[in-house]
Amino acid sequence: MIWESLRGHQEQVEMFRRSLARGRLSSAYLFSGSAGIGKKLFARMLAQSLFCKQFPETALDACGECSNCLQMQAGTYPDFFSIERKTGKKFLTIDLFIGTDESRGHDGLCYQIALKPMSGDRRVAMIDDVELMNAESANSLLKTLEEPPEGAIIILISSNPQALLPTILSRCQQVFFSPLASTDIVELLIKQEVVTDRQEAEQIAATCEGSLTAAAKWVDPALCQLRETLHQHLAQGNKMQNVTVAKELVTLLDEMSDGAQEQRQNGRRLIQFAVEFYHQSARASSGLSSSINSSASQRFLQSLTLPLSEKLETIAELADRATLSDQQLERSMPIPLCLEALCADLAR
């Protein structure tokens, strides 16, 4: 019943059902995949299914009405607890794992998970953004993973598992989560009232790479302005004033970003807008529906006086060039230099 509301990830549901049927539930799992695709929601649903009174554990389902389910939904179930980075902190600090100086060794995740269950037969803990542990936190967690309490389950959630210690990775069963389908993103955006217009939801879903978190950011007015500005410039094709455009885009990124990290994130979103523009222009050129500004797309296509096959090849090359810039920004290339080179190549 509970899984009917989940968008995507049905393969993972069946995997856990098979594990339960065989009596092979692991003591530690690492849920990995892009941010904003439902890993944390899945972990909570999994825990609720294990705790539900109305279904046997092997059924891996939850009624949503028993006292255990209601407590899980309210965040008060005594055998489930989660930790995440504190506001203003850069890392998952040591006190989250073994308590503060005053309660050291008598509080925190490593202490709580070892206690006897208060209501059911097991305890479940969830660690969000686990890659943000500092060295002390990682070592404390490792000790618990090496000697897991009987019946306990620890779920680690990460969008960057490569940042974890190999010794932690080796003690977890890894479960990979794929990005959400565009149709799922559209329905979730409308259901959560992020947008009310289906066409707008479809346009956002085409750019967010299966992440609901990323999709929600596309409605930000500053990002919308950035996207529209870029598309209008790209519509000029090889007549685009690349030096002027690059400077304008850098200025917009400076104005809308709070700090270097957010500026780089917005820079990568800018590049994604460019890739989106070319992908959707290729669709329009082939007679398929396009989710971007139709006038900008048509002006760009009109600037390409080439046979269809050569036109599509050119558009693909431009999209690949934009993708290269995304990789360069990911590797910490200076944003102004990256955009200057990109605009110069796109205007050729």
Rank of each mutant, 00 (worst) to 15 (best):
H9Q: 04
L60G: 02
D121K: 12
K86Q: 00
Q280S: 10
M45V: 10
C338L: 05
A43D: 01
D326V: 13
E202H: 05
A316F: 15
S158M: 13
C343P: 03
A235C: 07
L212E: 00
L324R: 14
H9N: 01
S281K: 07
S332P: 08
A274V: 14
F91L: 08
E313H: 10
F31R: 00
N160K: 15
Y111W: 06
E65A: 13
E150P: 12
N134W: 09
L324V: 15
E84T: 07
L226W: 02
E340M: 05
A282Q: 14
I127E: 00
A235Q: 06
R198M: 09
I271V: 15
S291C: 15
Q328T: 10
S297K: 08
L41E: 02
S49P: 03
E248N: 08
L164I: 07
L164S: 01
S303Y: 02
L301I: 02
T229E: 05
L188R: 10
G8I: 15
L270R: 03
T76R: 09
R283F: 08
G38E: 01
D326G: 13
T213M: 12
S291P: 12
L164D: 00
E84Y: 05
P307D: 12
L46Q: 01
A222G: 05
A59S: 11
Q328R: 14
D326C: 12
P148M: 11
L145S: 05
D128H: 12
Q192D: 14
H231S: 06
A28Y: 04
F80H: 05
I94N: 05
K143R: 11
Q71A: 12
I37C: 07
L230W: 00
P117C: 08
Q174T: 15
L156A: 01
L252P: 01
R348H: 12
E276Y: 14
L223Q: 09
L115Q: 07
V219R: 04
